[in-house]
Design a protein around this nucleic acid. Structure first.
Length: 803
RNA sequence: GGGCAAGUGGCGGAAUGGUAUACGCGGUAGUCUCAAAAACUACUAGUCGCAAGGCUGUGAGGGUUCGACUCCCUCCUUGCCCACCA
């Protein structure tokens, strides 16, 4: 064997590191005059105790290949790496192993870094960031202070999702199917004072600005749906014998005459107030039960709607009708004010509810049969007084206008997006830089005192009371108020995982800066990120929230544009050989170290590029890895047997140009699997025609292969006697003229079926092609006794004779 | 219930209006070997045929076209995301 990956790979990794080949150049006046830049970004990993996943390798290899090609094309490339290291998994891991989270983090990062380096990725390690480094989280806290200053960070007592097992509050995004995202325990509701971030203030801009971005449509629609903007009306239902009114949100103001009840969410503060004496027992018990039930349990009960009458009534503003007020658990507390107008005739849920509790069903839009089921489409109004005969569309407009005039309601826009619960009652996170003073209230920590470092403690287990472990460290909590000097206490909640990952890509532009989160000139040069690859699972979390934070920083003049990412792509998951998710409990995890030890990093890299379309989930196949290793051996053979030949034949050169074109173009479109197949075809052809293949072709093939198999490419490049690294070379250009063959196989069809393939000179005329086609023996049989009706000629491709 | 993808050999997949199944895996036979592994060579969608060759074939059905895996319509299946959002 003429190529031994084990020996070779480490050698070149060292060589590249010494040459500092992958360091990005800052713009003047900090660096050399910088040419055009490309900022290529992969989501930084969470350094877990499990080590690098082969899924990381897939997306990092892809973007590494792109970065390498861009450098060879002359771009000043920033391709950085760092660690998203705060958060629950490390804290849990530390508790389990009995070591401190900071030590666990250090150990895990060390391992991840070693693994990434063994893959030969071209990261600029001089810009490494770590979210748990006080020098880094100083600026995470600074961003929080700015949000607080602008009124976008606030505290609010609210029912939050609570995991009884982790003893921690969860963001809506962390509750999946009613269960805690991490441990799978059904989430409960618990009232706690929480820090909130007002992302809703940016809802419109987050939708609007998507238009300009090069994101997959799927990502855009998912974000739009998540924000969930809907246009409708807010309508006031005056409560009988009271000054108060119930505000309901509806997108179907046209059905207002069909209201036969108003239903409140059990959590609604109004609900309790409206319960009358005679309904007290029943209704209060109902509320208590409903509150105790988690969202999940409510869902599990086969969506059977339940409810209870409060005893109170309100007034339908459009016709003065007296309408009963109910409480029902099908009403979502956090949307639309937690109240709905119930129109059984024209809403499925209301229909079920009304049927169950014997409430009236009144048809006000014609078009369906409401004895059978609710009619939810638009139609023509009836039983609606002066609005009869209008179409639903017109009626929505007219009725809303009328309400607005009477000051009983009006147009209203609602969002599904809710403000972001930004506090965790945990140890392993950034302390929130706020001080609570008895006299002055909430006082922000003065900027010059940042960072507020996380105190090193022995006990970091959750308290379980809902308070963070920091709350028991008295000498840390107690502090003088920076405003009045009186007694005060530090905020003891910490920030969620997302806080550090919101802005990490800005820090790469200027990772050492102690005066600002990053220098403005550097941000102006590097931002926005030109290409950001990550997982679909981050679409409505990290990707949306970091866009919001970037917009906020733009508004306060810290960053140069309002969108951080120009282009977004996403990779598919790498599944285990059995088609399931890789998981320790299934025992089906593939460790990249094992593959690297056995076959080398290049084999793993090539395999992951070859295994299937980049955007698709795909199962691991151990035999497939062997197949790639065979390819590497074949390549080495080809090299050994042909590198002494001088010039390649015309055919080989043509195929090489085709390969050149394919790699250059498909790389941009992330069609890596077909690129690797083309290399295989080229090598197979070269081995078939050893005498025709020479040094010139090998050189170019190595350049083309170098982004994918950098070690192998460098090794053979240097074996050819080159004095500089292959990565200091220019990306090869292809010659379109060389791709054109002199003779081509023209397809001959009769009635659209292929009957023959004839060799003809390139650029043959229709007449000549026709003559040749008709005279073909095979074709003659199919034309016998038949009249030629029509001939379709596609130049240099095919000729179709219709008989 | 809503939204978005996708259905092609034994398997991963290629071809996005013009040779369907490239490339790889697996399989079969052979070479080498005391033997095995590895490697190499040939074959590998189904079907009829000694062969030449024919016919069928890209989830199902229909349509557009000289020509459809590809475009349009209806349906089925699978996957992902969202979901009592008024």
């Amino acid at each position: 064997m003429s190529y031994n990956p084990k020996e070779t790979e480490e050698k070149w990794q060292k060589y590249w590191e010494e040459k500092r080949l992958y360091q990005a150049e800052d713009p003047v006046p900090y660096g050399k005059p910088a040419g055009p830049k490309k900022y290529i970004l992969v989501e930084f990993p969470y350094p877990s105790g499990d080590g690098l996943h082969v899924g990381h390798v897939r997306s990092y290899t892809a973007l590494d290949a792109i970065s390498r090609k861009k450098r060879m094309e002359g771009f000043n490339v920033l391709f950085p790496m760092g660690w998203d290291a705060f958060g629950l998994p490390t804290e849990n891991y530390a508790i389990k192993k009995g070591i401190h989270p900071s030590q666990a983090t250090e150990k895990n990062i060390f391992n991840f870094r070693r693994q990434l380096k063994s893959m030969g990725f071209s990261f600029d390690w001089s810009r490494e960031v770590n979210t748990t480094d006080p020098k880094y989280y100083k600026w995470t806290q600074w961003i929080f202070l700015k949000l607080f200053e602008k009124g976008l960070a606030y505290q609010s007592e609210m029912p939050i999702n609570w995991c009884p097992s982790c003893k921690i509050g969860l963001a809506n995004e962390e509750v999946v199917g009613g269960k805690c995202e991490r441990c799978g325990t059904p989430a409960e509701k618990k009232n706690l004072k929480q820090w909130m971030i007002k992302i809703t203030a940016y809802a419109d801009r987050l939708i609007e600005d998507l238009k300009e971005l090069d994101f997959p449509e799927k990502v855009k629609t998912q974000q739009i749906n998540w924000i969930g903007k809907s246009y409708g009306a807010e309508i006031d239902f005056k409560i009988e014998n009271s000054e108060d009114s119930i505000k309901v949100f509806t997108t179907r103001a046209d059905t207002l005459f069909g209201v036969t009840a108003v239903v409140l969410a059990p959590e609604s503060p109004l609900a309790e107030k409206l319960i009358t004496q005679e309904n007290k027992k029943k209704a209060e018990k109902y509320i208590e039960e409903a509150k105790r039930k988690s969202d999940f349990e409510r869902e599990e009960e086969e969506k059977e709607k339940t409810g209870v009458f409060t005893g109170s009534y309100c007034v339908n503003p459009v016709n003065g009708e007296k309408v009963p007020v109910w409480i029902g658990d099908y009403v979502v507390a956090s949307y639309g004010g937690g109240a709905v107008m119930m129109v059984p005739a024209h809403d499925y849920r209301d229909y079920d509810f009304a049927k169950k509790y014997g409430l009236g069903i009144r048809e006000v839009v014609s078009g369906g049969d409401i004895l059978e089921e609710a009619f939810v489409d638009y139609g023509v109004l009836k039983n609606s007084g002066r609005f009869d005969g209008l179409s639903s569309k017109e009626a929505i407009e007219k009725i809303t206008e009328w309400l607005q005039k009477k000051r009983l309601g009006g147009k209203k826009v609602h969002y599904k997006l809710r403000d972001w619960v930004f506090s965790r009652q945990h140890y392993w996170g950034e302390p929130i830089p706020i001080i609570h003073c008895q006299k002055c209230g909430m006082v922000p920590v003065p900027e010059k005192e940042l960072p507020i470092e996380l105190p090193y403690v022995e006990k970091y287990q959750p308290t379980g009371t809902g308070e963070s472990p920091l709350s028991v460290i008295e000498n840390w909590v107690k502090i003088k108020c920076p405003k009045c000097g009186g007694e005060a206490k530090r905020e003891t909640d910490t920030m969620p995982n997302w806080a550090g990952s919101n802005w990490y890509y800005m820090r790469y532009c200027d990772p050492e800066n102690d005066k600002e989160l990053a220098d403005k000139k550097k941000l102006e040069y590097w931002m926005p990120v030109d290409w950001y690859n990550g997982g679909m699972e981050h679409t409505t979390l990290h990707l949306l929230y970091s866009r919001f934070i970037y917009k906020f920083l733009f508004d306060i003049g810290v960053v140069p544009q309002s969108e951080p990412y120009k282009k977004r792509t996403s990779h598919g998951m790498v599944l285990a050989e059995d088609g399931r998710k890789m998981s320790k409990s299934f025992g089906n995890v593939i460790n990249p170290d094992t593959v690297v030890n056995e076959y080398g990093a290049d084999t793993l890299r090539l395999y992951e590029m070859f295994m299937g379309p980049f955007g698709q989930a795909i199962a691991w196949n151990t035999q497939g890895v062997r197949g790639i290793y065979r390819f590497i051996e074949k390549f080495a053979n080809l090299f050994e047997e042909t590198s002494k030949n001088k010039e390649s034949s015309e055919e080989i050169q043509r195929e090489l140009n085709k390969l050149n074109k394919k790699v250059t173009e498909d790389l941009e479109q992330m069609k890596f699997n077909t690129i690797i197949s083309s290399f295989m075809e080229f090598v197979n052809l070269g081995l078939d025609k050893k005498e025709e293949t020479g040094k010139d072709s090998l050189e170019r093939a190595l350049l083309l292969l170098s982004p994918f198999a950098p070690h192998l490419a460098e090794e053979f490049w240097q074996r050819l006697g080159k004095k500089s690294s292959i990565f200091e070379q220019k990306w090869p250009e292809f010659d379109p003229k060389m791709i054109q063959e002199k003779e081509i196989g023209l397809i001959v069809q009769v009635n659209g079926k292929m009957r023959d393939k004839i060799i003809v000179p390139f650029g043959i005329s229709e007449d000549e092609a026709k003559k040749l086609a008709i005279s073909s023996e095979k074709v003659k049989n199919w034309l016998e006794d038949k009249e030629i009706k029509k001939v379709i000629f596609v130049p240099d491709k095919l000729i179709n004779i219709v008989v």
